[in-house]
Amino acid sequence: MRDDDGDIIYFFASQLDFTNIKSKEAELAAARHQAEAEVAERTDDLQESLAARTLLVHEVDHRVKNNLATMASIVKMQVRLTEDEGQRHALLSVLNRIEAISTVQRKLFTTNDVERFDIGDFARELATDLVEAIKRDDIRLTMDVSPVLVPAVKATPLSLIVNELVGDAVRRGLADGGGEIHVVVRRLNGHFLIRVEDTSEPVEPDPASAELGRRMLEASARQVGATIEKTMEGRRSIVDVTLLVENKDTPQ
């Protein structure tokens, strides 16, 4: 309020004590800093244990691979020292299955996704390596193989199925005067299909190896709940292994 000369004679003032608010703000800031520090520490811990876990997985994977390679070496060494044809045959049949499992282990960690396994990739490598190695021009291989990702726990039984089917077709083709082998691995109406089709004269196989193959196939199919269907049409024999693919198995 001013007098006639315009000088101030009274004034109103309002004061508010907000020490509390200011100190609350400081407390909040301190609490936030502390929380952030805790989060950072926790993140470091988690990253450290993740790194330790990754290292452990790789270490175990490496040891499993080495042990499988050692097992295969022992069997191969015994094969070289064995002269009896029947015994050699039996040892090579064991080696063949060890190698199939080794290939699964080798391929498990090649992709960034450690929980899935590409059975199509496995089938392609197995069939091409096998047919290339036997160096027989009269055995012709064709393939209709697409990538089919399956959960890692199913990798071994499914790979053994592929191994039995392809191995059986090649053995019959070898015993006979060659033939054609067609390998199919793909999805089909919500199912997953492994088909091995071959044309060769049906030959009487060695009973022990035929029985081992049959049991391996049956056990592996039961393991994953797959059905096996065999069709023979003259020289043509078709084996279909079908498996219902669960939705949780198929992220794509």
């Binding site: 691979k65 390679a69 290939t103 080798r106 096998l130 290339e132």
Partner: peptide, 10 residues
């Protein structure tokens, strides 16, 4: 590793 006999031969 572990390689197969066929894989190594090829």
């Amino acid at each position: 590793k572990p390689y197969t006999m066929n894989g190594m031969a090829n």
